[in-house]
């Protein structure tokens, strides 16, 4: 079933991405070198980036559903579907290797492109290709019922 998106929902989603991308740029996380400096312990600033972002969302995720029950636009709060198993762990291992290799992850790749780093098109093409390979591979593992 297709969810019908209210215009307000689309505006809120766009604004959320905008704020997220602007923050990624402000924190210099859109620059792969900043991320790599963290992974090699040359600059631990990423801890403050993650700490601030998680701190705010702890409040949002833990308090808002309990206080209000519904979202501001009247929809339900969604759970992240995730089950930890051996395959997921392997995914985490591979993701980390790629992250440590180039200092890019999906959000900063998009925001960094917007901030003018055209080299990130290569990373984005790679991410799209990786997601495609995963889908082709996963589609063979377990037949998904359409």
């Amino acid at each position: 079933m297709l969810q019908t998106e209210s215009p307000l929902g689309a505006v809120a989603t766009l604004a959320s991405g905008l704020l997220f991308g602007f923050g990624l740029a402000w924190s210099t996380m859109i620059r792969p070198e900043s991320v790599l400096d963290f992974l090699t312990f040359d600059d631990l600033g990423l801890l403050f980036v993650l700490g601030s972002a998680v701190g705010i969302n702890l409040l949002a995720y833990q308090l808002v559903p309990r206080l209000f029950g519904r979202t501001l636009l009247g929809t339900a709060f969604q759970e992240r579907p995730f089950e930890l198993d051996r395959q997921a762990l392997l995914g985490g291992v591979l993701f980390g290797v790629g992250w440590g290799l180039c200092g890019v992850c999906p959000g900063p790749a998009l925001a960094g492109l917007g901030a003018g780093n055209a080299d990130l098109l290569i990373a984005l093409a790679g991410i799209f290709a990786g997601a495609l390979l995963h889908g082709l591979w996963a589609g063979r593992q377990v037949p998904v019922t359409a």
Binding site: V104, A129, A131, H134
Partner: peptide, 10 residues
């Protein structure tokens, strides 16, 4: 890195 990130994240 991009391919590993895309495959690994998914």
């Amino acid at each position: 890195g991009g391919v590993l990130i895309g495959f690994g994240a998914r």
